[in-house]
Nucleic acid binder design. Structure first.
Lengths: 119, 119
DNA sequence: CACTGTTATGTCCGACGAAACATATCGAGC
DNA sequence: GCTCGATATGTTTCGTCGGACATAACAGTG
């Protein structure tokens, strides 16, 4: 049974890094565009851009590099640092699941299995 | 340098378990009272109680056992399950820091060190 | 130079969550 | 049976966050 949908969120003072930002980074890396990445995950462009802004401001160097204008209107891509942070986050997720498998199983087994969600 | 104040938050569907609830559980275990635990961490009783209610509802069995009335007005304590969950959460935190030390250091080193917080 | 798609940014408003305030209940002890 | 301290629960207010909408800037292409 895998009822334990686990999400990892890191707080560094003001900056916080969680599944949302991580997925957004991944989406930008794949799509090459902030708006496309946001669209794909049902997020308004403004929200996506605000997340990017928060990340770029929160880290010493920008994670996302963007350009506007041009043939395709512009685009965005991960910087070296951005790729590093994303990879580290994914690795951290994996290690957490691996190293904490016992504890996660312990807690997960005690969670009420509410498959019958009323709404 | 340890600028990386890390917090771990787990999501199990509706239920979420993070530093706030974990600290509250620990406080209840120490103080023997929901209100005292909440007071100690600058939290209104209502909020503390709502967190307890959410946990008791979210897990298959209650984590906190409470009694009202009596000489001291009542009190609360962790159940067996509550102690287990708290211990597992603390262990998970420790394992995350241990197993993910490399990644945490990688990300932490890239975070803007904003000691000069404007407010 | 108009067109195009994306980045970049502002304003406005509703919804949601949290805090503040207000009670009600309970039960051992005096 | 009155008091006390803590649990238990409701109501109301308020601040904040996010979504909807609007607009400007940009640069390559035809």
């Amino acid at each position: 049974m895998t009822p334990t949908r686990l999400m990892l969120r890191l707080y560094f003072g003001e900056l916080m890094l969680g599944p949302g930002k991580a997925d957004l980074l991944a989406g930008i890396a794949e799509e090459g565009s902030i708006s496309a990445a946001g669209r794909r995950m049902g997020m308004s462009y403004k929200r996506a851009w605000m997340l990017v802004e928060a990340m770029n401001a929160g880290f010493a160097e920008p994670l996302v590099e963007s350009a506007r204008g041009g043939a395709k209107g512009g685009g965005a891509a991960l910087t070296e640092v951005g790729q590093t942070v994303l990879a580290a986050y994914r690795a951290l997720e994996a290690k957490l699941r691996e190293a904490g498998a016992d504890e996660l199983a312990t807690i997960g087994a005690l969670v009420r299995c509410d498959m019958s969600d009323g709404k």
